[in-house]
């Protein structure tokens, strides 16, 4: 797997390190010289110094053979440009962008960005939902935000705890894609019984995601 990371700061450093540990081929594009040296020295990844929105730079970083490009700059316009150049000029199969203004998430999807991740939105969801003491994190948003993948942590007294999956009355357009139980993945089947502290991966359309969360975890208090 060949991945190009474009951006700056801690997020690029930690992602590069993680990808490298997973034996992926990582090339990082950073605008700052000191940061470039630092990345090369400390993680040993290939580094290209410069502005990732300049078409030539992506090519230099190996965009023609890359499996994915991640655009992680603090500017939405730059992340969009990086993704679009990668798609249009170098046919990179997966382009992933950090979206700073959550309103831009949908626009990015419309403009050919494979995955747009809004940290602002993830954090605000976490904070809003945690006010109601359930940990619910939206992991990704698919198909122009119409389908979301969320992680729902079940409290011990959550309504779905103790029920078999086939007895959980989920709405039509929601399904459980997996359960993480004590660090291991449980493949969800009809007879699987939900337990407290299960982390349920929920895939649902926007229309019914709240109802599905309510069925699993109870009504989230405002």
């Amino acid at each position: 797997m060949r991945v190009i990371l474009a951006g700056q700061g801690r997020i690029v450093y930690h992602l590069a390190r993680q990808f490298r540990q997973k034996k992926m081929q990582v090339v990082v594009i950073v605008p700052d010289e000191e940061e470039a040296h630092n990345l090369a020295r400390r993680i040993g990844v290939a580094v290209v110094l410069g502005d990732a929105t300049a078409p030539r730079l992506l090519e230099e970083a190996g965009a023609l053979r890359a499996d994915a490009v991640l655009a992680l700059s603090p500017h939405d316009e730059d992340n969009l440009a990086i993704c679009q150049i990668a798609r249009q000029m170098y046919q990179v199969p997966r382009v992933i962008a950090l979206v700073n203004d959550p309103d831009n998430e949908e626009i990015f999807h419309r403009l050919d960005v494979t995955v747009a991740i809004s940290v602002t939105r993830i954090l605000s969801i976490l904070i809003e939902e945690q006010a109601g003491f359930e940990a619910i994190g939206q992991i990704i948003s698919l198909d122009e935000g119409q389908v979301t993948v969320s992680e729902v942590v079940l409290r011990h007294n959550a309504p779905a705890v103790g029920l078999r999956l086939d007895a959980v009355a989920l709405p039509e357009e929601a399904l459980i894609g997996g359960i993480v139980r004590q660090g291991a993945v449980v493949i969800p089947k009809g007879p699987t019984v939900l337990q407290g502290e299960d982390r349920v991966i929920l895939i649902a359309t926007d229309d019914c995601v709240h109802e599905a969360i309510a069925v699993l975890a109870g009504v989230v208090e405002e």
Binding site: T53, H75, D76, E77, L80, A81, I107, R110, L111
Partner: peptide, 16 residues
């Protein structure tokens, strides 16, 4: 003054 900003705004103007 910024190319990438112009590109994004132009596309949003058209598409949205």
């Amino acid at each position: 003054e910024k190319d990438t900003l112009n590109l994004m705004v132009a596309q949003v103007g058209r598409q949205v």
